[in-house]
Nucleic acid binder design. Structure first.
Lengths: 334, 334
DNA sequence: TGGAGCGACTAGAACGATCTAGTCGCAAAC
DNA sequence: GTTTGCGACTAGATCGTTCTAGTCGCTCCA
């Protein structure tokens, strides 16, 4: 086993190239102050030795780490999409992302402390569940950006999606198709559920329609149960809290012999991978993960590099039309 | 903005407690060599100042980092389950996990180098796509454990699931129920697909049955297509490459008016979150993510702390019985 | 009485980088 | 011919820890 070969340091490269450590440092981080010939010579020596700068030492010395800490929940597919996009956005800005998952038996505070220990210059927290006070405490150390949640107090940035606008788009879409009897299967106690429920009420009333809401939740089981509760008085369209609940609703309709969208239109929320499945083809309200991620990264970097105060950014979602919404079935009027 | 308050260091705590830096260091890492009264005094001072050790400095100085690097793919829900379990397993062993995602436009090598830069003492790679040579190169620097893939050469550890055994369990289960006409919807070019295909052939022949395989793939669309190709000659049971493909197969059967499991039994593979959904209730072969994760972490730690050579660990999967498999429908024999 | 042994504590050198404050030539300016 | 300025390069301090090699005071035992 040749495992114990110490990795080369600046000193080794310097010796090999016949210059000082400081000069190698200058070359390695592309700073000014080295002639082109020596620069090449140093680079060559570094390549030959397989030198890679030790980030710990580098970070220890320079106050800058160019690291953005990102906490996400390992059980949320939608978070994964954001992580994906955040990497791209960060590297475009010259930053690295360091991840920490909120998992079973690993609370959010633990994830955050790990990020701080690595020297993150800012934190991006996806759907944080901390109280505003706790977040403020972290915000006194580094800029904190809350993603997908905006009631986070004055000291924390937030990038979120306009729930009211999303529901408005949903209601407008369905009424334009001719639907009048629209039901909202809500998200129960989930984050954003209250906002969407309230928005639904407002928008339905605006259209002169009766806002009927049935209790639901954030996943398939909840949607299934909610759908079953509708069987006595089936509406012509359903707006679900999210895509997973929508799938449950569709399943329950199917079980009673109803077809989507022929008999009932169903609209999801999130435009997640589930919605895109070819056999589902769920029409959905998209929050656009890549856009949200990029916005959060931009905010974080701006806060790090600038002196601006925290801001609350709200993005407007949009409709992704697939195959679960259509004109209502012709039907007797009471 | 009170943002620029330097975080307290060992020195600050030492001054506050009236002792030397070294002693504070001893207390903070719980080492021997401090009396109980001073230990309390130091701890108190640290708590008061809100001291948190700077991991970069700590890691720089001590050769040990107690860090395990874990690379995963952000688009694979099954990987998320492993990440979850790995955190638990690592902290039980006194190690921390540092994550790096393989994402769109972020190749595996990039993810790995990030892990090394953070000072990972070992790498755990989930379903790595690197060549054996490339992995060997990394293995010369730190122990590398490949998870879910075992053809990785002599220098790399692997922890994988016994595909042959999994398929054997599947075939045995179905034949025991009385099925004779069993079809395998394979995984196409996906990792492990060839092994499972071959195992299916062997096992069916062992039972004196004809091994019929139809081309599939790793997700719903593939299953759907494969299912549609069966309509001329519907088997009594299907073993899908994985759960997502199984979902597609079920969908295609439904579309032709067939019921699961009354008319056709369908068995998935992975026992993923999809399989567990209440409206799916898919019987499946479980690879047991928590167990695999724990095994990988254990291997990594053993390699770091011991002098053992790399090993290839294989775990036997097991059947998780739900509601998509049952006795075959009574049927005319030709 | 004079070590030996031990527990509690400390000074100062690492670790591997960056940063500050230079030195050293050399050409242009006066 | 001295001064000035500038580009190229370097020595040494520094970041916040851990580690090594002590010192100091005390007890125990021959």
């Amino acid at each position: 086993m040749t495992e114990q070969q110490r990795r080369p340091t600046l000193m080794d490269v310097a010796r090999a190239a016949g210059v000082s450590r400081a000069l190698v440092s200058i070359v390695m981080r592309g700073a000014a102050g080295a002639s082109e010939p020596t620069r090449q010579k140093v680079l060559e020596a570094a390549r030959e030795l397989g030198y890679r700068p030790d980030s710990r030492a580098r970070l220890l010395r320079s106050s800058r780490t160019k690291l953005l800490g990102l906490s996400f929940s390992s059980s949320q597919p939608f978070h994964a999409e954001i992580v994906d996009a955040a990497y791209a956005a960060a590297s475009k800005k010259g930053y690295e992302i360091v991840l920490s998952a909120v998992a079973n038996g690993r609370p959010e505070t633990r994830a955050i402390e790990a990020l701080l220990d690595f020297g993150s210059e800012a934190l991006i927290l996806i759907s944080p569940t901390l109280s505003s006070q706790e977040m403020a405490r972290y915000a006194s150390q580094v800029p904190v950006v809350s993603l997908l949640r905006n009631d986070v107090g004055e000291l924390v940035d937030s990038v979120s999606s306009d729930d009211h606008a999303g529901i408005r788009i949903a209601v407008d879409h369905l009424t334009t198709l001719g639907h009048r009897r629209i039901v909202h299967v809500d998200g129960g106690t989930a984050v954003s559920a209250a906002q969407r429920r309230e928005a639904f009420r407002t928008e339905m009333i605006r259209h002169g329609l009766e806002p009927v809401t049935v209790p639901g939740g954030p996943n398939e089981e909840d949607g299934l149960r909610a759908g079953q509760s509708l069987t006595g008085d089936v509406p012509s369209a359903v707006i679900a809290f999210n895509d997973r609940a929508a799938l449950g609703v569709i399943e329950s309709l199917r079980a009673t012999g109803l077809q989507v969208p022929r008999d009932v239109s169903v609209l999801g929320y999130d435009d997640s991978q589930f919605a895109r499945l070819s056999y589902v083809q769920l029409s959905s309200i998209s929050q656009d993960a890549p856009l949200l991620a990029a916005a959060a990264v931009d905010r974080a970097v701006d806060r790090i590099e600038g002196t601006q105060p925290p801001a609350h950014l709200v993005r407007t979602p949009h409709l992704v039309l697939r195959k679960t919404t259509g004109h209502p079935a012709p039907q007797m009027q009471p």
